[in-house]
Simulated scan of single mutants.
Amino acid sequence: MKNSKKKYLCIFPKLMNFHLIKDVGLLPYTMGKSFNYDAAILTYNNDDYDYLKAELNSEYLKLIFLNKKFKTETRDVLCYLIKNSRKIDVLQSFHLHDTIGIFSYFLVYKLLNPQGKTYVKLDADDLITSILINKKGVFGFLQKIAIKHLIDCISVESSKQYKKLIETETIPPNKLIRIPNGIYISQKTKIPKKKNYILTVGNLGTPAKATEVLLEAFSKIEKLEDWKLVLIGSIEKSFEEEYIKKYFIENPHLKDKVIFKGYVSDRDKIYKFYSQSKIFCFPSRSESFGIALIEAAYFGNYLVTTDVGGAKDLLKIIDYGELIKQDDSDYLAERLQKLILNPGKLEKNPKKLMKEVNENYNWSNLCKKIYKMIN
């Protein structure tokens, strides 16, 4: 019997296992699960993709592996689209700032399948939005043509970036929608008794994450009592060998209070740390949205974050956290000290937070906007 489901294909040649539980995997997965598409991601075979077995139901999301026929991924993708565009009902890609890739993929697709729908998720921070707004010359021309004639739906994650793109007339309001990143928690969650943990999750030591600002701030807190700083995520090699080593030499009293857990692939273990922690600290310099912030809010963490990505949007909803200055370890130390000395500020009902986050950042609810626009 012929498969009557419409086909939804997301182009993401660099897919790794961890992408599957981020927007890259969860968006097409939701289109398959909640909206009955035959959903797939087009990628090279880069990893073992354990999350497709452990976290997600492979009935709703498939992986289609590209053949490495050419020297560039653009040509390999185009080769696939030339052969298969007529079978694809919705074609999705990321990153409009990849002008040549987006223009060539969608041009070929629309020429071969004029009735097909196209969607781009911008994944945009301040820098990417600025690039889109200020693009000139040939690339600027191709971007305008793509937006006007080749793309049916474009989404951006935060109100801040949405406003910039509309006000500068970079993308017309009839094509641009705001969709924050969502969360997908695969288990029924129990909130244990909270511990005096300050948690952060991300690629530690990268310029964007500003891990050194958090570490410096923690070393400046005079009355730490029994509080600990827990850091989860892969650690940049140079940061580990140079900064962290020096940090503990200068702060030997913090060896038992600053805990690096490294990269944790087991989602249940990460959820456990979220659920045990009282404060989630996010001193980032740049984020397109910051999924870790939503996960932390879901598990009842008080958010201490810079005004990056969708932080301000999230705080308006949950009203449990505060914005801090970027690159100011003295200010961050002061704010953390006040929270430590005023534990009453860290007592919002976790179940209420879960409900608020789930209502506003549930992938099924978010993807309804995409479904409506492409239909």
Rank of each mutant, 00 (worst) to 15 (best):
M1Q: 11
N3L: 09
K5H: 09
Y8G: 00
L9Q: 00
C10I: 03
M16F: 14
F18W: 14
K22V: 10
V24F: 08
L26D: 02
L26S: 05
P28S: 07
T30F: 02
A40V: 05
T43G: 01
N45Q: 15
D47Q: 07
Y49G: 02
Y49P: 03
Y51L: 12
A54F: 15
E55C: 13
K68P: 02
E73V: 12
E73C: 10
R75Y: 14
C79T: 12
Y80A: 03
Y80D: 09
N84L: 06
S85W: 08
I88K: 00
I88L: 03
D89T: 04
L91S: 01
L91I: 06
I100V: 14
I102C: 05
V108A: 09
Y119Q: 04
L122A: 00
S130E: 13
Q143M: 13
K148S: 11
D152H: 15
D152S: 15
I154L: 08
S155W: 02
V156Q: 01
S158G: 07
S159V: 11
S159R: 12
Y162G: 00
Y162Q: 01
K163H: 14
E169S: 14
T170C: 12
I171H: 06
P173C: 07
N174D: 12
K175W: 07
I177E: 01
P180Y: 02
I183E: 06
S186I: 10
K188W: 05
T189S: 15
P192I: 10
K195N: 15
N196F: 05
T200I: 03
T200L: 03
V201H: 01
P207H: 10
A208R: 10
S219M: 04
K220Y: 12
I221G: 03
K223T: 12
K223I: 13
L229W: 01
L231R: 00
S234H: 06
K237H: 08
H253A: 09
L254S: 09
I259G: 06
F260Y: 10
F260C: 03
R267G: 06
I270P: 00
K272H: 12
K278C: 04
S284R: 01
R285W: 06
S286V: 12
E287Y: 07
A292E: 04
I294M: 08
I294K: 03
E295I: 05
Y298N: 07
Y298I: 08
Y298D: 07
F299I: 08
G300I: 04
V304E: 03
V308W: 04
G310T: 01
D313P: 11
L315F: 06
D319E: 15
D319H: 14
K325W: 02
S329Q: 11
D330V: 15
A333K: 09
A333E: 11
N342D: 14
N342R: 10
G344N: 14
K345L: 08
K345F: 07
P350I: 11
P350E: 13
K351T: 02
K351W: 06
L353R: 04
L353Y: 05
N360M: 04
N360I: 07
W363Q: 09
N365Q: 09
I370K: 01
I370M: 08
N375R: 15
